[in-house]
Nucleic acid binder design. Structure first.
Lengths: 222, 222
DNA sequence: GTCTATAAAGGGATAGAC
DNA sequence: GTCTATCCCTTTATAGAC
């Protein structure tokens, strides 16, 4: 039974950077605080990374790969289990939400940095940041759109795309600061309980996905 | 017919700051770019405001008051129109979404700074920022929760609070960068069309609000 | 009220020894 | 690979003339 060895300097820099960027944003975090937290010298950053921006990209890249894989794997597994039948929208939502929610509500504060950072950059209008995000997530987006189209052939694709945006938006909001919800609701909502959060989100969004536009129009007119 | 007079230096600083903060964030925006855009001297900022943070608070304060008023007025008007009947959830959603969405999809780019900034700080984990936000929005939150409880007495309050969070989250996401959605969906979704966006959001969220947890549980179990 | 000038600190980045 | 030392720029903020 071996003690986990001290991570490499490069890894420690990435960990500290992830934490700092998630708390203070890209501009708000300084390399000096990052290296102090990582226990390395300032120059070490420039040995492993070209500059601050490259460090940020490395931080994102390290996480996006596995998360994308998990998203796609989960969806693929559900589809395999359903044996040709289109998935119920609840299952698709589960595959959309679980990988990131699981990380976000994991108890160790350290791991929350990942999702807080992702939530943050999802709402960052900076074009370069958006380009990174789009590059990493477009494959996942397409896969989920496809699954939803198969599951809900009666809903126009444009409408499904709107609804996907709404779900990502709500998810990003929670990722940014899960505990905020606890404070805002005076404890009525407990974001640390993964099962409940999943149940609430799936239960809220699934009926919306099933709704058809004509229904909406009718209700609005009344 | 009088030409609108050039706004006061103080106003011009607030406008420029709002724009800069919304595009580059609090840390990313510098007072120097703000004063240049505003056409005033750097020292002028310190004549009108204590420091950078106070400027940020002034920027937020100037907008939050009117928006809160609009939210509450709209809800009150709808309630007056319904003559004692509880409001349908569609109307409540309309009152929740319209004030900010209207600003966000208003054509002049200038006005989008307001909502982009609001969307941004909604996802900012910084405790001070969150305190400002909570101070300004708590009244609105309570009013909408009350309306929803009256409209949907069968849904437990904690559940309603979760659902309110999801709606704010999706809204914040759109406020941050409405045009992003157009790009991500290759033009299938047009966020500049206020009526459509409203219809999509209301049509998507209303069925979720009406859903009961037992329903959810049943569907999940299957 | 508005300007110039400058202080004081912190930031990213690099050179060069070891 | 890792360190010290430093460059050089930008930033917030202020002092003081007008």
């Amino acid at each position: 039974m071996s003690k986990t060895p001290k991570p490499s300097p490069c890894e420690r820099i990435l960990d500290a950077a992830e934490q700092a960027f998630s708390e203070r944003g890209y501009e708000g975090a300084s390399l000096r605080e990052i290296v102090q937290e990582a226990g390395v010298n300032l120059a070490t950053v420039y040995y492993y990374f070209d500059n601050k921006k490259a460090l940020m990209e490395a931080v994102l890249k390290r996480r996006f790969g596995p998360i994308r894989t998990e998203h796609l794997e989960l969806l693929r597994r559900f589809e395999a289990e359903s044996e040709g039948q289109p998935l119920p929208v609840e299952r698709i939502l589960e595959a959309m939400l679980l990988p990131l929610l699981r990380l976000a509500v994991a108890t160790p504060t350290k791991r929350q940095a990942v999702t807080r950072l992702i939530g943050r950059i999802m709402t960052e209008p900076n074009p370069q940041t958006q380009a990174i995000l789009r590059r990493h997530r477009s494959e996942v987006r397409v896969a989920f759109l496809k699954a939803l189209q198969a599951s809900l052939p009666g809903v126009p694709p444009a409408e499904l795309q709107w609804r996907i945006e709404f779900v990502w938006g709500a998810l990003a909001f929670i990722l940014c600061d899960p505990r905020k919800i606890e404070k805002e609701t005076n404890g009525a909502c407990n974001p640390a309980d993964l099962e409940t959060v999943m149940k609430e989100m799936v239960g809220f969004f699934a009926p919306g996905f099933r709704a058809s536009s004509s229904n909406t129009a009718r209700r609005m007119r009344q």
